[in-house]
Design a protein around this nucleic acid. Sequence first.
DNA 1: CGTCCCCTTGAATGAAGTCAATACGCGTGG
DNA 2: CCACGCGTATTGACTTCATTCAAGGGGACG
Lengths: 255, 255
Amino acid sequence: MADHLRLKLDHYVRLSADDRARISTLAQCNIRHVRSRRDLIREGEQPQFVNLILDGWAVRHKMLEDGRRQIMAFLIPGDLCDLDVFILKEMDHSIGALTDITVAQLPREAFDEIGRKHPRMMQALKWDLLVQLAIQREWTINLGQRSAIERIAHLICELFARLKAVGLCVDGTCHIPITQTDLSEATGITPVHVNRVVQELRGEKLIEWKGREIHVPDMPALKRTAMFNDNYLHLEQDGAHLDASETGNAPPGGR
Amino acid sequence: MADHLRLKLDHYVRLSADDRARISTLAQCNIRHVRSRRDLIREGEQPQFVNLILDGWAVRHKMLEDGRRQIMAFLIPGDLCDLDVFILKEMDHSIGALTDITVAQLPREAFDEIGRKHPRMMQALKWDLLVQLAIQREWTINLGQRSAIERIAHLICELFARLKAVGLCVDGTCHIPITQTDLSEATGITPVHVNRVVQELRGEKLIEWKGREIHVPDMPALKRTAMFNDNYLHLEQDGAHLDASETGNAPPGGR
DNA sequence: CGTCCCCTTGAATGAAGTCAATACGCGTGG
DNA sequence: CCACGCGTATTGACTTCATTCAAGGGGACG
């Protein structure tokens, strides 16, 4: 099933039954499994498919010459990994599996066909790309302006919002299979300091983190300490205004 | 003239004479002037045009509730500002003018027409969007992993590469109309500390910065201290492989 | 039951931030 | 032509948040 993708796109535009059926069939393409801590795709490669994550978590990451590593994005079920594949010549970063993952490898023709027969779904995919850009900008703010505790709180808020959008958050609890080291590589903070900050968040009853489960008992409070505003995720079906337009020839990413 | 845009797109794909002619006419759309330090577009608005910068510099920026401000991108001549306009409901950030600027306000129809009649140019615009994403990811690395001196050196390398691609770098010198305060808001460093780092870069003969001109006498040396690798800009016309494909129905951003 | 990975804690160090004052360059107006 | 004002750049002294170094603890798994 590609249920997570469908749930996400449902937040963007109003999909037809036909669109939904098409999304389900996407998950039957060319399934691939990748073990935890392996790379799906490496910097420099030019893969021939777009990977849709069906199950498990992955990261976009890049290593500097001297070994420092930055995680630039977390990819969760319903996310498409390698947008660039059919345009850019090669990957400028790698994608690694955080857990064992299952992906569907979508061929170019699938997208050509969506463009022809499912214009609204195409709009939703463009929307998704723009949201990725917005998320990346928000990370820039996070790393540039926020303190360690704010950064981590903000990231947790974001992950909760995204997981909720794909149906992976129940009762204020999410399965979030990342280590404190992963978190440190995403936030640009030392693992040791991440640990201290996590203790602090626990001390203030803002999060409960045990094993791979994070529970947020008081989301408004967490959002306040993170100064989190979810507008950049562009969820909440504010895309109803697209319903009228079915043109297939919108600008790149839908300018 | 929209010469800067044409020069940039030339780095991505092989444009036809017809495409080039079309780009030139873009610059005749609906010209608007904005004074230095004013916003072109504010967070929350939904503008009706895509702004193409013909002359001057702008920034994407966002302010936190408590007044901290982050610059998330520098926009130079040839850049398109507000991709989201025809898809997303409202801006999640603002765009401000660093200098007096001139923009062409492109209507939706212009893009519809490009999609129909200039497929290769459309590819180039999608490419440009993906490069923006890549730049934003690189900023994430910059802020997350690099020291103050590396960050500033890296940003200067990036600006030089981008300016060169649109014909605005001569003899290792660029006109870069930003203050040290702007630089501090882009790199997440204090203005005071930016100053010290700039002194240090001067001391090591890596840059000469006077007024609004920056000269880099030894680019390889600057790149070394920044650990700069330009692969993420995807310049160098590696898009020749797109020449064969003229389909208008590529996926969003060209997946 | 040992080993590996991850989490935790303490103490010392350091890079960048803060506070505060001064200097420079440039356009305006007397 | 010079004084004034304003934004920007510069410098010094002190502080702090986060890093570094180092060591110990706990749980899962073979």
